[in-house]
Design a protein around this nucleic acid. Sequence first.
DNA 1: AACTCGTGGCA
DNA 2: TTGCCAAGAGT
Length: 352
Amino acid sequence: MKDSALSASLLGWYDRHARSMPWRVPPAERARGVLPDPYRVWLSEVMLQQTTVAAVRDYFHRFTTRWPEVAALAAAEDAEVMAEWAGLGYYARARNLLKGARAVVAEHGGRFPETREGLLTLPGVGPYTASAVAAIAFDEAATVVDGNVERVMARLFLVETPLPAAKPALTRLAETLTPEERPGDYAQAVMDLGATICTPRKPACGICPWREPCAARAAGVQAELPRRSPKAEKPVREGTVWVCLREDGAVLLETRPEKGLLGGMLGFPGTDWDRGKTDATPPLAAGWQAAPVEVRHTFTHFHLKLAVMVSRVPLDAQPARGRFQPREAFRPADLPTVMRKAWEAAMAADPR
DNA sequence: AACTCGTGGCA
DNA sequence: TTGCCAAGAGT
């Protein structure tokens, strides 16, 4: 089958099965010349990096309600944006999102660059996101290569080389299929195919628009592709956080450094997690009480066992680290998930 | 080039 | 319960 026939059959499938999403313009509307707002496409694509559609939906709604256009986001406070992103993970995305919005305003007159090349200059926009925004928002014939596309190409062309080594070859194969007509619909179509039919386990080959040309299916190995190099085992790390409650209800919090794990996010003072708990020095002297259950949390590359210490202190307490936040200004939802778990453990130990 | 960086859902 | 991994980018 010719490449153009492959993309045509996929577009036909997409016309009938495109999933509805808040940031998407459906194919029938795109056919009438309607393109989506680049700001919303960019925002959704950044949120969707390594993140499921289900997890993104509510965050996308809250962000676009609070900051309807890029200029509004650019004018937001860092802490507001980080708090709104809390729970979604990969917090460098939120820091770069804000930098990107400010760059669009300051360096591009408030309008997004309209080419893949221009988009690549924005912080937090890499090869995938630049292609996605260029194709979806501007109908540039850019090739999107995400995890879905890698999987679909590995199966369609029976690529046995394990990832990530296979990535360049998979990218070249994907490029041969990208059509000049409707590249925006096509980009969304390949990803929809990977997300709904050509899934990692138990792909639904029986209803796949590409079942005939699929080489992996012909060989019966579709469920085994793409192969992946074995990944390193996750070490277990340990640490301690101190949850300090002042007499008036204020909570001791600190903003974490910009770089590194949970960078720029709010959290409780604590130890480093790459060393032991040996040099654990609390932020102030107090009657610290251990929460009965430790917090367990798994990050991308390690498991964490976190001890939670709780204390109550008088109004004149002077901590060496962090700042007391009035109880009414403190929302657990503003914390990254691991810190929210620590808060819940502290409340279980010492409810108020 | 390999490592860092979150979280939730699912089998 | 544990491991897998989802619309990746930065260093």
